[in-house]
Amino acid sequence: MNTAIEDDSTLTDRYQTTVPASVRRALKLKRRDRIHYTIRDNGEVVLSRAHNESSQDPVMVSFLAFLERDLREHPESIQPVTASTFAEAERLTSGIEVDLDEALTEDDDDA
């Protein structure tokens, strides 16, 4: 059975606090790490290690931001995916075999 970790800290005049050592150890936090706070409806706060944004693909992040912006600015462009859409995708990819378990070549690793 896991034992809950409980600890206290004090807010300074500038609303800053030190994360207690027991919490830093439990979350494996180091200097300059980011912390994520989730505040639940009942006032409970969940403190967790923030996701490392630098591990995200910057091209994908930019592309998704572009898509989000475009969808917000042009909602009239949103079209449903239909059976004919799938049929066209199947037509365009027919005869192409993909082995998802195949190892990448050196050239593919750099892409």
Rank of each mutant, 00 (worst) to 15 (best):
R32D: 08
A111P: 02
D99V: 09
R32P: 00
T85N: 15
E6V: 02
E102S: 12
D109N: 15
R24V: 00
N2Y: 11
R69G: 05
L67H: 07
N2L: 06
L64F: 10
H36F: 12
F63N: 02
H36T: 10
Y15P: 03
S9P: 05
Q16N: 12
D108E: 10
R34K: 01
E97R: 04
A111V: 10
S62N: 04
N42S: 05
G43E: 01
L67S: 12
A83L: 15
V98M: 02
Y37T: 07
G95R: 01
T18F: 02
L71P: 01
S54V: 02
A111C: 09
R91H: 11
A21S: 07
I96T: 04
D7E: 14
R40M: 10
L47I: 14
E88P: 03
L47R: 08
D110Y: 04
F63A: 05
A103E: 07
I39V: 14
P75F: 10
K28M: 06
V19T: 11
N52K: 04
H36G: 06
R31I: 06
R31M: 09
R25L: 04
H36E: 13
F86T: 15
P80M: 03
N2K: 07
E68G: 15
T105G: 06
H51I: 02
D8L: 13
D70Q: 14
A87W: 05
G43C: 09
A87V: 12
E6G: 08
L104A: 14
V46N: 06
R40W: 07
E97S: 05
V23T: 15
Q16K: 07
V59S: 05
D99G: 03
R24P: 13
A26G: 06
D13K: 15
P80L: 10
P20W: 02
V23A: 12
T105F: 12
R69L: 09
T18S: 11
T10H: 14
L100H: 05
T38Y: 10
T82Y: 03
S62E: 05
L67K: 09
V45W: 03
K30P: 03
R69I: 08
D13V: 15
L29A: 00
V98H: 07
N2W: 04
L71C: 13
N42Y: 00
L11D: 02
I5K: 14
T93Y: 01
D107G: 15
D99H: 08
E53Y: 11
I5A: 10
E97W: 03
T10L: 10
Q79T: 13
T82S: 04
S55D: 07
L11P: 06
L92W: 04
A83W: 12
A50I: 04
V61T: 08
S94I: 06
A21I: 09
A50D: 00
A21E: 12
T93A: 04
R24D: 00
Q56T: 02
R91Y: 11
T82E: 07
S48A: 12
L67I: 03
D109F: 13
P58I: 02
D57N: 08
F86D: 01
S54W: 01
T38N: 11
D70R: 15
T105I: 06
N52L: 05
